[in-house]
Design a protein around this nucleic acid. Structure first.
Length: 226
DNA sequence: AAGGTTCAGGATAATGGCGA
DNA sequence: TCGCCATTATCCTGAACCTT
């Protein structure tokens, strides 16, 4: 994963523009708007650089819809970088950190999560992709099954409460037979579900649809670097 | 119509091999 | 070690096409 300063000038400009645009309009820009704002004349170049930013873990893209862009890492000096702002909690709503995902040990995730102030994370609204903060919660990741998805041991994932998922979604899933929660990519394959780790040497888990329950979909990842 | 994707091909930078 | 050259990788342009 590259740091912000190691990105090309254009890629940094794209991130800054996306950050400003989301802050102003509340939704992401189009590829053509990004091109206009960053002096890129070809949509393919914008697309190329967006793919690079996905590769480096700065943004996520949705294949199925227009403006399907989402910042998933804070931008240094960006409007939505992780800091207190004049609008305070409104722009940086609290997301409760309620536990961790750890293989072999079940974790109960309440429908209405509660955490004391010490365990509340301030997450920029743009990182939640329009999801109501009251529908979100955070978990600390233990293990390295998602390293290829830029999620390391100790990272915090922010999730939206949901009991459904689409193929390719990164989700927290409760496995009823194993009595544990796991973080994997979700793929429905007929009556069974494939839970795919993002790790080169780890095998997917196959379970019957009735033996797993989606508990949340990952919205973004938070990492402390020190 | 707006917005996104794909493709062929060109320019430039980075890298590696080789001889002096 | 240095300079030259070939190869490869990266980034870009422009246009056509596809999807919603």
């Amino acid at each position: 994963m590259k740091s912000f300063s190691k990105l090309s000038e254009r890629q940094r400009n794209i991130l800054r523009f996306m950050d400003r645009y989301f802050d102003e309009y509340g939704y992401p820009p189009t590829i053509r708007e990004i091109g206009e704002a960053t002096d890129i004349f070809s949509t393919s170049v914008v697309n190329y650089n967006l793919n690079k930013l996905v590769e480096h873990g700065f943004i996520e893209r949705s294949d199925s819809k227009a403006r399907g862009l989402r910042l998933v890492r804070a931008i240094p000096n960006g409007r939505n970088s992780v800091r207190k702002s004049e609008k305070g909690a409104e722009r940086f709503p609290g997301v409760p950190l309620i536990g961790q995902i750890v293989a072999g040990e079940p974790i109960h995730i309440p429908e209405t999560a509660y955490a004391d102030e010490e365990n509340m994370l301030e997450i920029p609204r743009s990182f939640l992709g329009g999801v109501n903060p009251t529908e979100t919660y955070a978990l600390r990741v233990s293990g390295d099954s998602m390293t290829d998805a830029m999620i390391q041991d100790g990272d915090i994932v922010v999730l939206r409460h949901t009991d459904t998922a689409q193929n390719g979604d990164m989700v927290a899933v409760w496995l009823t037979d194993r009595e544990e929660t796991t973080l994997k990519y979700f793929y429905q394959e007929g009556m069974r579900v494939r839970l795919q780790p993002a790790h080169p040497t780890m095998e997917p888990i196959y379970v019957q649809g009735t033996d797993c329950r989606v508990q949340g979909k990952v919205l973004c990842v938070v990492r402390r670097v020190d």
